[in-house]
Design a protein around this nucleic acid. Structure first.
Lengths: 340, 340
DNA sequence: AAAAGCTAGGCAAACGTTTGCCTAGCTTTT
DNA sequence: AAAAGCTAGGCAAACGTTTGCCTAGCTTTT
């Protein structure tokens, strides 16, 4: 379908004025008489004129677009962050291009370059599970600002907006200590991701601070933080002679899997074994007993990430930075640890 | 930070060739000798040249961008559709701008116009709950193609890609009939949304086909399809003298709420009351008993929507259409209806 | 009344790319 | 040997917008 899309030129011709006058009238800059302004605005409306954003971008040498790269859009915490990002970018009239890596490192690298080609002004990014090769990131960082959020890395010299993982995990374990638990286990990732490692540190810190001895047999590793892996590991745990009396799972999914198995073997939660998760997912209120968990403010992280990015885009400095903003968490106590 | 971003002109000067030759060499069109091509490519690599996508867009008068408008990014079915959309757009090297309306009609209207300003080539859209004023949509449709998905409307003259809601609901109810249930209730939305209405039709159709009498007292309305509303309505239902022996809920959330309340009153599912949901959400496998539900292929819908949009963008015709593509569902039988 | 200042709007260039048309100087055909 | 064809690359325009600089023709100041 061929459309005759109205341009400034068209309006100018209809009104027998110059293109620059039209531009100035519509953008309200330069000295244009009120009468002319009025006529221009009317004619623009009559023609259904919409400024050609592509031309404007071209002239301004920027797209007012930011790129967002996440491993998995459907991960519930990521979803909350995206909501924060969208709300904030929309407020400042920026566009947001979202991509998924599915934790595929090759794809991550490709998307990073694709973002440059797409002409984004900056990038918000949550790293794939095991991003090891940092050079693609560093290369992009020479041209455009990048802010890492949630799944970050201490090794990349750019601003990071993350949950205070250590403190969150600390609070979770402290809570288990407070309700009188003695043998507190942790389930973490085998190949420590950023989040897993930090949460593990929080676990260790809490034990240390409360003079709990570190018991290696209470540290469990899984390769995937899914419900199924939780269930499977649960089978192993219920068969131990010396069971833990509390389990801190680094994700809600793992915790749900564990609870499912404990339920199956009629182990009473939280009396026999208490369970804590991390994330406050939707399902944490569906599982029976309801799951005690750590609530992270994804919304806040998203919003901060955008603000920070805009700031760096406007700055005249280069984009290397070691700034790290940590957002606090909140312990949500539910049935899985609630004892009178 | 001021950057000296390399352009075709720069390469041309360094190599003492014309800009057009550089363009042709890099894009491999026009007749350029292999030697020249090689030199150009080398120099481009040396300068770290990235084509200026903004200029390219400007010249081509298109952005290779599609806009996606959804009510809520975090709704799990929407998430699956978005994944389908992202995978497909990425494959064809298109960008995707995603926005959320939060079921706010004003915002929906604004975003629609924002999309035009953003210069998208086409729009994929899932309607807000109660979009009544169709004129903003029609206005956009005069300029750019729109494809509606999931939350569609029979009243809008554009292509729609939706779940076969009627058939899905029909299968759900048919399944309840097959397991011997006699008093089959439905929980739907008070102010019928597109999906709610269609699912209700499926319910009616199944009753009709199996000669079940229509019992108005078995039709329940809620104003929100949340877990909480399900729980609340559950309280009402368990107190009825004449209870249903099966409940078809038009969403998984409602079904989960119902199950929670039934569990609370120790009503045995599915013997006393069977429950079916719609969507196959994550939580449907977390609730105990696991929920029987209707699986929709969001991935397929997303992919189809993109394909259809691209087709319409390329077409020379106008963008009005009454095409409707329905994607089939699958009944997933779990504990909440499973009887031997 | 001459000079200075102001108001309203025009001219033209620039952003980086692609492409239709052109042509010099070969090579091949008759 | 003249004509035709081909190869490799150049010229210049175009996309729509914004903006620095300019100026005609007023009005105000001295």
């Amino acid at each position: 379908m061929k459309k005759n899309i109205p341009t400034l030129k068209q309006i100018a011709e209809n009104l027998e004025l110059s293109v620059s006058t039209i531009s100035r009238a519509l953008n309200n800059n330069g000295s244009i008489s009120d009468l002319t302004k009025k006529k221009v605005i009317e004619e623009a409306k009559r023609l259904n004129y919409v400024p050609n954003i592509i031309a404007k971008n071209f002239r301004d040498k920027r797209t007012k677009t930011i790129g967002v790269i996440v491993p998995n859009l459907m991960h519930s915490f990521t979803g909350t962050i995206l909501k924060g990002i969208l709300l904030e970018t929309e407020r400042i009239k920026y566009k947001t291009i979202i991509c998924e890596t599915n934790d595929n490192i090759e794809k991550e690298k490709e998307l990073l370059n694709r973002m440059l080609e797409f002409g984004v002004d900056g990038i918000l990014m949550s790293l794939s599970k095991f991003t090891t090769n940092l050079s693609p990131l560093l290369k992009v960082l020479e041209k455009k600002p990048i802010i890492l959020f949630d799944k970050a890395s201490d090794k990349i010299p750019c601003t990071q907006i993350v949950t205070n993982e250590v403190k969150g995990a600390f609070n979770a374990v402290e809570h288990l200590i407070n309700i009188g638990k003695k043998r507190i286990a942790i389930i973490k990732e085998k190949q420590g991701s950023f989040n897993s490692e930090k949460r593990f540190i929080g676990y260790l810190k809490a034990l240390d601070q409360y003079r709990y001895p570190l018991d290696e047999t209470l540290i469990f590793d899984v390769s995937n933080t899914t419900i199924e892996e939780g269930e499977l590991l649960g089978e192993y745990i219920v068969n131990l002679k010396e069971k833990p009396d509390a389990i801190f799972c680094i994700t809600d999914s793992l915790a749900i899997g564990i609870i499912k198995t404990l339920n199956k073997y009629n182990i009473v939660i939280p009396i026999e074994i208490a369970v804590v998760g991390f994330s406050n997912s939707d399902s944490s209120r569906v599982i029976k007993p309801n799951l005690t968990t750590i609530k992270q403010s994804g919304y806040k992280i998203g919003k901060l990430a955008v603000k920070q990015l805009i700031e760096e885009m406007r700055s005249e400095k280069d984009f290397f930075s070691s700034k790290s903003i940590e957002v606090n968490t909140k312990l949500i106590v539910r049935e899985s640890t609630f004892v009178l």
